[in-house]
Amino acid sequence: MSSAHARRVKPWNQRLAPYLFILPNMLIFGLFVVYPAINNFNISLYDSRNGRDFTFVGGANYQELLSSEAFWSAARATVVFAVCFVVLTTVLSVALALLLNRRIKGRAFFRTVFFLPVVLSPVVVGLIWGWIFDRGNGLLNTVLTRIGLGQPGWLVDGGLAMTVVIFVGLWMHIGFYILIILAGLQGIDPTYYEAARMDGATSWQQLRRITLPLLRPTTMVVVILSLIAGFQAFDYIWTLTGGGPIGATTLMVQYIYENAFQSPIRYGLAAAASVVLFITVFALTLLNFLYGRRKEAT
């Protein structure tokens, strides 16, 4: 791949150093993430009705997945959710970070406010929004009825429920991504702006020509992290909709969770689904990464 410039011989300590630096992390990581993940792949080739007794079935679990309506329904819902979540998260976190980066009064206050939901436990988040969005008795519909807007079935209609789930996801996580973008904004050298101002560039031009391009690596981080979060969403949805109405918000992780831990247990099938999920997200991340690298190179 890239060995052309390694010709110059480095002193031993420089050659050894990187391995020592990565060792502690990689050790923990190998034991508690990589090895179990490989094990998981292994399990996907077996059938297990209790998570302990295994019968080898080869690719049968994968075949079953491909012909399972519930799996495809979860896959579709996951893609819809993840795409909306990533796009909205990226746009909103950049926009809000730019606002929060201005010289305004109460900036620290606003930052804290937007971050607040991040620290809430997902269970509580699901619970609270469940009360708010309840059709007959929810806080939101109580208000809407009063001003004559009727009672939308937020959690009763499939499409609306998906919207609600995406909204609550954003509400809960956006503060974290704003923080990342803010850190990125701090990394942009102010001399660029000074130079631009001297050339008479407007704020809009500065935003287009300096801020956004220089922010791209950080934005990439947000895209990748939100992509992963989008594909992993589960716990607050579990409390909020339970995956309903009739499966409309059952995402992949819930599908896996139910197969792995709820009767009827299909542990191997769950493992196969998680392998599929993993490969999908890995491929997407890799694309992102390679794309980002090409940009870096040019």
Partner: peptide, 14 residues
């Protein structure tokens, strides 16, 4: 009976 209760519960006990 409250139909919403069933629809809003997903696959969970409620």
């Amino acid at each position: 009976m409250p139909a919403d209760l069933w629809l809003q519960a997903g696959t969970k006990y409620k």
